[in-house]
Write a protein that binds this DNA or RNA. Structure first.
Length: 231
DNA sequence: GCGACAG
DNA sequence: ATCTTGTCGC
């Protein structure tokens, strides 16, 4: 698929904040999307390892057909990781490999799901949101642990599957703690771009099976990503 | 110096 | 994220 080069893929660290603030003005999270209206969904993830003394990243994108949930395509990429991990700037560390893999896709997914946040971020620019500008498609962020924005803590949702609590910052709901599986830790769902919060929550829940609290597409990418490390 | 900290 | 063994439980 085609990638839109919104800005250089390897900006200097002193440009990080400026890029995030620039893109922030173009985020649109008011569009409803229905699960039944989706034909395909892609799960994206990256694992880390070492090759020849270099920190190396392994990216995998798994494309699912709906509603069969059949995997119709996979795309991978791997290479040295040059940017250190800094909370709030995960995108700059992982985006290069994600775009390398996405560019190889023969099919254009209707939606991408990421391991990490969307607008549940200090500058509303988590990896799912940031990547959407390069992909030109709706995205959703699924984080396994809470990334505190400002002083906002999250309230524990009820133990039943499907329950959730809004995470409100400055009067705006920018994410939800969602119980995707009964009695287990919640996941943190937030719109990346081109989709609203309730649609993102609904889709995340419908794509979560009984085996894991993580939506299937992201879980699949996570599993494949570690297999890559072994070879 | 101390605490916080998506992946 | 990754480093790491066994162990408790369904």
């Amino acid at each position: 698929m085609e990638i839109h080069l919104v800005h250089p893929v390897h900006p200097r660290p002193d440009e990080f904040v400026g890029i995030q603030e620039m893109l922030r003005q173009q985020v649109r999270t008011n569009r409803p999307l229905t699960f039944s209206g989706l034909s395909t969904v892609a799960g994206v993830d990256i694992a880390y390892g070492e090759q020849e003394g270099m920190e190396t990243g392994f990216c995998h994108i798994a494309l699912f057909k709906l509603p069969s949930m059949e995997i119709i395509e996979r795309a991978e990429s791997q290479g040295p990781i040059t940017v250190p991990y800094m909370p709030g700037f995960l995108t700059f560390r992982e985006l290069p490999l994600i775009l390398d893999a996405a560019q190889k896709l023969q099919n254009v997914p209707d939606l991408f799901m990421f391991d990490g946040n969307g607008i549940l971020h200090p500058r509303r620019m988590g990896i799912a949101t940031h990547a959407s500008f390069f992909l030109g498609k709706p995205t959703i962020g699924i984080a396994k642990t809470y990334f505190k924005v400002g002083e906002t803590e999250y309230l524990q949702p009820a133990p039943e599957k499907g329950s959730f609590t809004d995470i409100i910052v400055g009067g705006e709901p920018i994410g939800r703690a969602v119980r995707t599986s009964a009695g287990v830790k919640p996941v943190f769902v937030s719109p990346g771009n081109q989709i609203d919060l309730s649609s993102a929550t609904d889709i995340a829940l419908q794509l979560t099976g009984p085996d894991s609290r993580i939506p299937v597409p992201v879980r699949e990418a996570d599993i494949q990503t570690r297999n890559m490390r072994r070879r």
